[in-house]
Write a protein that binds this DNA or RNA. Structure first.
Lengths: 152, 152
DNA sequence: TTTAATTCCGACCGAATTACTCGGATATCA
DNA sequence: TGATATCCGAGTAATTCGGTCGGAATTAAA
């Protein structure tokens, strides 16, 4: 029942991206530096975010990433599901249709799993990236400029 | 973010145990047979349930297991935590105390993880074993006698 | 008093997943 | 034509998962 580093790093990366990409695209390298995440690993995560349609890429020099949608339209659930796959702790066959299970206790547990799944998804879907970004800006002053990241 | 077979099998085993242990203790062997779970694996799970104080064992021939508490006093959360360990998808240091995080976005994500953890634990704790057992009995007729399980 | 049923305990094991790294191809701005 | 970037796929060490196996200890029944 653990959330992997994909989800944990990825959410931080998205907040970082939202904070710094207002003017110019943000490079993976600069996010990695600020967030102390391995650059090559972060690359994989951002690829997933892109495939999910949450960020857009701009290739070439001075390129980077920007959000594909306004922060109010991106939920924590969208981000986590993009990175982790389904957040359902139990993937059950025939959740919706009234599928008759073999044993009655299996059927009963199915309701349990569904309630857990629903509770998680509801919780993450009602939190929007906008709220997190706003909160983050309140904590420290705004630094909207993305310092180009150090070379190696 | 997956619940392992420990939790899934274990919950079914607890329902089974509650259904069949009213008169006599129930053997692992018979639970394994009814629930189609490997006997030797189930042994490990029941050991965890025992250590958590949810079931009591009666050793020797005609022995087995019985619930240690009334079904109304055992929550799904108790069972799952006994088997899986903490259900918190993210284990965060210093959740309670106002620990100042290094970066503001880390602090912000901390609130996210806390809300997810709370939502899961609340959901599983408000479901009691009693409800599941009652529901299970409604589905099919009651078979309170534990047929001694087939030998190998 | 033996025997069969049963819990108890720890070691082992293959397969999958996690959390990365690395090397290089491709695109694009200056 | 470089220097920056994204893109992409393969490799890999460590850990977890989902069990199995063998045997010791306990106790009811024959």
């Amino acid at each position: 029942m653990k959330l992997s580093t994909k989800g944990r790093y990825g959410l931080r990366a998205m907040i970082d991206l939202a904070l710094y990409s207002e003017k110019d695209p943000v490079s993976i390298c600069s996010i990695a530096e600020r967030q102390a995440i391995s650059e090559s690993y972060l690359e994989q995560l951002v690829a997933k975010l892109k495939k999910a349609g949450l960020v857009k890429s701009i290739r070439g020099a001075q390129g980077g990433y920007v959000l594909a949608k306004p922060t109010a339209d991106i939920s924590v659930g969208d981000i986590l599901r993009a990175l982790e796959g389904s957040l359902d702790p139990v993937e059950c066959m025939g959740f919706d249709e009234e599928h008759v299970c073999s044993g009655s206790d299996i059927c009963v547990t199915k309701h349990v799993w569904k309630r857990i799944n629903d509770s998680i998804n509801q919780t993450v879907d009602e939190m929007k990236l906008k709220e997190l970004v706003d909160e983050s800006r309140q904590v420290r002053g705004i630094e909207p400029t993305d310092a180009s990241c150090s070379q190696k």
